[in-house]
């Protein structure tokens, strides 16, 4: 293994919790660094995160640059940028990956502009060409096309979409180095965080995962089953109009012509027949999975995967499988 930093990963954290996308980036970054025969590094900014920085090593980092300072506790884009730019100028990685979360997409362009380097947005795939240049694949035109992008400058920066790369499994025996960095404290960044509140309310139109139910549901209590599947997948609950009209669930959950238009990565429809009005709201989903008892239901023609069967028989084992997959219960 070489000694220089080939790939640098920004370790996004909020409330001291590292975002899952970081582990995915470490998974991909590990592969790229190995192919480049260089080190995989991560940069973590925050306060009181010594413990957490180990996790980054367990998930594949060779070295973690830790900026541990009260002024970095919360995300201040100017203070973060300032310290990261200094680091990048020192360690000169070939590749710098940042999660395409809202935080990442606010921070990365500032860093790129400060470094005067290219930045590719919201990548869904990364590869190396024969010369070791980064090949970046990203959707554009609102997801209708894919573009392959190369960067002429160094570092080659990219933000990478969540749930696109595979993390390595956590290995507490993996070793690495934690480098405590001197934080340059900016007294006045021009930004003051007055408050931070947990975002409330469902936002179907931006959800990545929607688990929806229709009139195949027999009683409002059964929505708990749907909720449980949604929670296990980190998704939100959607519904067809009859459930909303019956008052089983709030209107903000309705998908369709007179409800929300959604475009998740996966839409799972339990007991929904697929009326044109419902399809209007979800037909642009990446993957549609339908569970319906009736083989003649029209949603089946609009699905990527379908199950002809009773949702009440499918959901309980599905919940068990999901729990197992997530290592709970």
């Amino acid at each position: 293994m070489g000694s220089e930093c080939g790939v640098l990963v920004f370790a996004e954290q909020e409330n001291g919790e590292i975002h899952n996308v970081v582990y995915e980036l470490l998974g991909k970054g590990r592969e790229l660094a190995n192919r480049l025969n260089k080190m995989l590094c991560a940069v973590l900014l925050g306060f009181g995160l010594e413990e957490k920085s180990r996790e980054l090593i367990y998930y594949g980092a060779d070295r973690v640059y830790l900026f541990d300072h009260p002024s970095l506790k919360n995300f201040d884009v100017i203070r973060y940028k300032h310290n990261i730019v200094k680091l990048v100028n020192e360690v000169k990685p070939d590749i710098f990956l940042i999660g395409a979360t809202r935080m990442g997409r606010s921070l990365a362009p500032r860093i790129a502009a400060a470094l005067r380097t290219g930045l590719t947005a919201d990548c869904v795939d990364l590869d190396l060409d024969d010369e070791g240049n980064l090949v970046q694949i990203r959707p554009a035109f609102s997801g209708n096309i894919m573009a392959q992008i190369r960067t002429r400058t160094r570092p080659q920066m990219a933000t990478v979409r969540y749930r696109m790369m595979k993390p390595l499994s956590r290995n507490p025996n993996r070793t690495g180095e934690i480098v405590r960095m001197e934080t340059e404290f900016l007294e006045n960044s021009g930004i003051e965080i007055l408050d931070r509140v947990s975002a409330s309310g469902v936002n179907l139109s931006e959800a990545d995962i929607i688990v929806a139910a229709g009139r195949g549901l027999k009683s409002p209590e059964d929505l708990k089953l749907i909720e449980e599947v949604a929670n296990l997948l980190g998704g939100v609950v959607g519904a067809s109009r009859p459930l909303v009209d019956a008052g089983w669930i709030g209107r903000e959950h309705q998908v369709g012509f007179s409800g929300n238009t959604v475009k998740p990565k996966v839409y799972i429809a339990f007991g929904i027949s697929g009326s044109p009005q419902h399809l209007f709201g979800m037909r642009d989903s990446d993957i549609i999975i339908a569970v319906n008892k009736d083989p003649s239901a029209s949603i089946i023609n609009f699905s990527d995967y379908y199950v002809i069967g009773d949702l009440y028989e499918i959901i309980p084992p599905l919940i068990r499988e999901l729990k197992r997959a997530r290592g709970v219960g």
Binding site: E14, F75, R102, M103, I193, L194
Partner: peptide, 8 residues
């Protein structure tokens, strides 16, 4: 942001 609203 995804998890929280920032008042800035």
């Amino acid at each position: 942001m995804e998890q929280s609203d920032y008042i800035l």
